[in-house]
């Protein structure tokens, strides 16, 4: 049986842990609300951008000279996976889920004989992946110390991806991020970035009747990298909201576990104390009888 003093120490230490986890839970909840509002605010732009792109892309269906960003460069040998993770941990399996998804995807693609490269967006993903696939990581970026990712950051990533694609470093780009479904569920999601959705003959029926200035091709040329940035930005915001949700859930259960632990420890502490008193009493009575 551990001594009274060591039990008391443990109770105190668990109590302060509980204080920390419950404070972190509150902070995560507040930040989650802000992250959700931010993701909500970015939706109109992405929505309109998608509509415009769909209208323009439909007119490019069947055009052999369509932008490679839209229809691909005809190859699918080298795949780039963009792994979006958080920069910080203490969020349950949030980051581990992305790493797991990437690992499975790399294995599956390599089994098909493809070459795989990884771009780690977020510190935790880079930390976890660089141990086992150092040679595959072509780039990394994180937002440590910044107040979340801004659109300019997403744009910088998008430009880097377009540059690499045009230089022929990879043929297919896929984004892997945690989609924020609700506070309890964040689902690892794969989203093709390049090529953007292939226009099908079906789209032709709803062919747009917009006039376009300067012209379809050059506007698409500007719109596509922009759209890439928008998608990455949306994923970053989604990831951010998901991260705080995951952290909130994790800290909530940590707080509850600490509470249970304290209950158990207090019970054994009281038992030990009673046992001590009983022994002392017995000793005193035994001593009195002996006189």
């Amino acid at each position: 049986m551990p001594s009274l003093k060591s039990l008391r120490n443990r109770i105190n230490s668990v109590k302060s842990t509980r204080k920390i986890t419950s404070a972190m839970k509150m902070v995560a909840a507040a930040k989650l609300r802000r992250a959700q509002a931010q993701a909500e605010a970015a939706r109109p732009y992405a929505c309109r951008m998608g509509e415009m792109l769909a209208a323009l892309a439909a007119s490019e269906a069947g055009n052999p000279n369509a932008s490679p960003l839209l229809v691909g460069n005809g190859k699918s040998q080298t795949h780039l996976l963009v792994a979006v993770t958080a920069d910080r941990g203490l969020a349950g399996a949030f980051n581990a889920n992305i790493v797991k998804t990437i690992r499975a995807k790399v294995k599956a693609l390599e089994a098909e004989g493809k070459t795989v490269k990884v771009f780690a967006l977020g510190r935790k993903g880079n930390d976890a992946l660089r141990l086992e696939m150092k040679d595959k990581i072509v780039g990394t970026k994180n937002f440590v110390g910044k107040k979340g990712a801004g659109f300019a950051d997403a744009e910088a990533v998008a430009l880097e991806l377009v540059r690499g694609f045009k230089a022929g470093e990879y043929d297919v780009v896929t984004l892997v991020y945690n989609h924020f479904q609700n506070v309890m569920v964040q689902k690892p999601t794969e989203q093709p970035l390049i090529p953007a959705a292939q226009p099908t003959a079906n789209d032709n029926e709803m062919e747009h009747n917009y006039e376009v200035e300067p012209d379809d091709g050059s506007l698409l040329e500007r719109l596509l990298p922009r759209n890439l940035a928008v998608q990455i930005y949306a994923a970053l915001l989604d990831n951010n909201a998901g991260f705080y949700a995951a952290q909130m859930t994790a800290m909530d259960s940590a707080t509850r576990n600490a509470g249970e632990m304290i209950k158990k420890l207090t019970l054994s502490y009281n038992r030990a104390r009673q046992a001590n008193i009983t022994t002392e009493l017995i000793e005193i009575i035994a001593g009195a009888q002996a006189v």
């Binding site: 970015a42 109109p44 309109r48 659109f151």
Partner: peptide
């Protein structure tokens, strides 16, 4: 009229 930036409406 809608004026939209990537961050917000």
């Amino acid at each position: 009229l809608e004026i939209i930036s990537p961050e917000k409406l």
